[in-house]
Amino acid sequence: MDDDHDLVPGCPGEEIVAGRPAWRHTPSGIVFRKVPAGSFRMGLSDTELDALRAIERSGGVEDTLEPFLARAEDAQPVREVWVEPFLIAWHPLTVAQVQHWLPDYEDEYADADTGTARLEDDLEDLLDLLPFRLPSEAQWEYAARAGTTTLTFRGDGKPGEDQLLDDFGDETRTAAGENAFGLAAMGSENELCADTWIPGFAGAPADALPRTGKGPRTTRGGAADVYPWQGCDEWLLLLSAMRYEHAQFTAVRPVAPQPPS
């Protein structure tokens, strides 16, 4: 295996990035953070639903949350899931990082090479070449929650546009958007997961493995993809439990095995 297909040679060792331990895949420049093992309650809980209704009652929505609440069962039932430790990219892949594998890749959505790559026609080509895999839904939500049980890792309040991040050229700004696991922009972009889209979690595994099969994959997050917000409650896309069927362009945040100690 060459460096692109073996995380350890590509990541020569632990380093400090933005004040936290990280592993950098040298050929592409992807920075990974370690997510510790643990269990969590996965899905949209009754407490979170109550928090959403409280936001609606306070006048914090542009229209009504009823269409969203009617689809709440897509993220239920809530269940306990155990997650083994793993590495996940600090932020979604940038245009420059995608160009490591796809030199001719261009992105009309990004303002710079340091911006998030939103892949459409090139998506499957990248996934074929990428030496890392997509996160399972359970890994993604566990990483996004970072030990919290609230609507977002910042709490149960309505998220603001200041939580969005879709360019990573400024390391200080990127670090300011981190959660407790040191991950930035969780929920900002619509990020592709390894799981096939299945409404709800009935019968889903409790060991964080992806549910695979034929059909479109599941997408998480996505609020920055409709920025600037246009009064349609796009902030809901920032919720840790938000999930939907992949239909168009998407960002990619790869995961890798835990490095040897």
Rank of each mutant, 00 (worst) to 15 (best):
residue 35 V to A: 02
residue 167 D to A: 14
residue 235 W to I: 01
residue 68 F to P: 00
residue 219 T to P: 00
residue 139 Q to C: 04
residue 30 I to E: 00
residue 108 E to L: 13
residue 67 P to I: 08
residue 108 E to F: 10
residue 26 T to L: 10
residue 24 R to D: 01
residue 25 H to G: 02
residue 67 P to W: 04
residue 76 Q to P: 01
residue 27 P to G: 03
residue 249 F to S: 15
residue 15 E to C: 11
residue 51 A to C: 09
residue 174 T to M: 06
residue 61 V to E: 07
residue 1 M to F: 08
residue 67 P to R: 06
residue 183 L to K: 08
residue 91 H to P: 00
residue 154 R to L: 13
residue 175 A to C: 04
residue 251 A to N: 11
residue 118 R to D: 06
residue 149 T to A: 12
residue 128 D to S: 13
residue 244 Y to H: 14
residue 8 V to S: 00
residue 89 A to M: 07
residue 42 M to V: 02
residue 225 D to T: 08
residue 254 P to K: 14
residue 95 V to M: 11
residue 249 F to G: 15
residue 57 R to W: 07
residue 250 T to H: 02
residue 92 P to S: 09
residue 242 M to I: 04
residue 112 A to T: 15
residue 135 P to K: 06
residue 229 W to Q: 11
residue 178 E to I: 05
residue 170 D to Q: 08
residue 21 P to C: 07
residue 240 S to R: 07
residue 176 A to F: 03
residue 64 T to K: 10
residue 44 L to I: 10
residue 106 E to N: 12
residue 87 L to R: 12
residue 121 D to V: 11
residue 123 L to P: 12
residue 24 R to K: 15
residue 140 W to F: 12
residue 193 C to P: 03
residue 94 T to P: 00
residue 196 T to L: 12
residue 71 R to A: 13
residue 29 G to K: 10
residue 134 L to M: 09
residue 63 D to G: 06
residue 206 A to P: 02
residue 122 D to N: 13
residue 25 H to W: 13
residue 123 L to C: 11
residue 151 L to H: 03
residue 141 E to I: 05
residue 205 P to S: 03
residue 169 G to H: 04
residue 110 A to I: 06
residue 118 R to I: 04
residue 218 T to Y: 09
residue 90 W to K: 14
residue 228 P to N: 05
residue 247 A to R: 13
residue 38 G to H: 08
residue 59 G to W: 14
residue 66 E to L: 12
residue 227 Y to I: 00
residue 150 T to N: 02
residue 173 R to W: 01
residue 42 M to H: 06
residue 183 L to M: 09
residue 157 G to R: 08
residue 208 A to R: 08
residue 157 G to N: 10
residue 239 L to E: 04
residue 49 L to W: 02
residue 30 I to C: 02
residue 122 D to S: 15
residue 62 E to S: 12
residue 56 E to S: 05
residue 135 P to D: 05
residue 175 A to K: 02
residue 151 L to W: 03
residue 154 R to P: 02
residue 15 E to R: 15
residue 108 E to I: 01
residue 154 R to D: 09
residue 258 Q to G: 00
residue 48 E to S: 11
residue 20 R to I: 07
residue 203 G to L: 15
